[in-house]
């Protein structure tokens, strides 16, 4: 994607080119720096921004009420009046999708935060701890990999019953092994790096090296991974809701919308396709943005 929009450093204007890291960049300088960002990343940022606004201030994006019932307008297809159509009670689907954003995003963020939290602990213990700790954690991760995320989540729902909390915990636990393995690899590579060796040689304490060198460098790639992960977590969580094992239907949460629309699939396709479109848009945007951050972080390394 990026190849089509790749621009060589822009032709010199009258003033010398300010660099990306230039503190006092002029507006024009910032603009030309922005032009070097691929279109895909910009579009993704716009999509993410839209959903963040929808989560924080849904009123700005729609004047309607997500629960307003209007039976005379039930099951209408997308039109100028109802952009994404209406459901069986005549509720406007666009309004519902906008109002459902907050809960869906929170589920995604919560699950990712939980997964990363577990992963950091396991990854650090495994990468820094004694050999037997490493062996234990690595084996444990191998076992967890044998459970697909969705099945593990279903196991949890069986035990604790369907709810938002179960959804967050189940998806968080299911996705944690992947992150943990990544952090372990990162810790191992940072631990043997030249600058850590140098810090040891300079006589810095273990705690200081851990805090100042290991942690920041081992967790830096997480910025990208978390961006990628939020979208994926929402996909998993709404997959669970799609099966009727998540947030219950009257809620406008995206998974609940999918669950509710399933009954009407034969004559109201938009009830299924449109909430799914919101999920896909957010997931793709977060993936593209995550990849972009990832490649820039890698580029920043010497």
């Amino acid at each position: 994607m990026s190849t089509t929009t790749f621009l060589p450093p822009t032709a010199p204007s009258t003033s010398p080119m300010p660099s990306l890291h230039d503190g006092g960049a002029s507006f024009a300088g910032r603009l030309s720096a922005l032009r070097r960002v691929p279109v895909g990343a910009l579009v993704s940022a716009a999509v993410v921004l839209f959903f963040v606004v929808a989560a924080l201030a849904p009123r700005w994006l729609t004047g309607g009420d997500p629960f307003a019932i209007d039976l005379s307008a039930a099951l209408q297809g997308p039109s100028a009046q109802h952009w994404l159509g209406t459901d069986q009670s005549g509720r406007d689907l666009y309004t519902r999708v906008v109002y459902g954003t907050r809960e869906s995003l929170l589920i995604g963020l919560g699950a990712t935060a939980l997964a990363v939290g577990i992963a950091v602990v396991l990854g650090l213990a495994s990468g820094l701890g004694a050999r037997w700790v490493d062996g234990l954690v690595t084996r444990g991760l191998e076992v967890l990999f044998a459970f697909p995320v969705l099945l593990l989540a279903m196991l949890f729902v069986t035990i604790y019953g369907p709810s938002v909390t179960t959804q967050v915990i189940a998806v968080g636990l299911g996705t944690a092994p992947g992150y943990a393995r990544m952090i372990r690899g990162q810790v191992l590579s940072v631990r043997t790096s030249g600058y850590v060796e140098a810090a040891h040689a300079l006589g810095h304490s273990r705690a200081r090296i851990l805090r100042r060198h290991l942690l920041p460098n081992a967790t830096r790639p997480l910025v990208a991974v978390v961006t990628l992960g939020v979208g994926q977590s929402i996909v998993w969580a709404s997959g669970l809701a799609f099966l009727g094992l998540g947030v219950a239907p009257p809620s406008p949460e995206w998974g609940a919308l999918l669950d509710a629309g399933r009954l009407f699939i034969t004559h109201a396709w938009w009830l299924e396709v449109m909430p799914g479109l919101a999920i896909v848009a957010l997931a793709l945007a977060s993936t593209t943005l995550g990849r972009f951050i990832q490649s820039n972080l890698e580029g920043a390394r010497p």
């Binding site: 979208g231 996909v235 709404s238 997959g239 799609f242 999918l258 699939i265 396709w269 299924e272 396709v273 799914g276 479109l277 999920i279 896909v280 997931a283 793709l284 993936t287």
Partner: peptide, 9 residues
């Protein structure tokens, strides 16, 4: 990146 439930529908 396509969720299976969406593609299936």
């Amino acid at each position: 990146g396509l969720p299976q439930y969406w593609l299936g529908v």
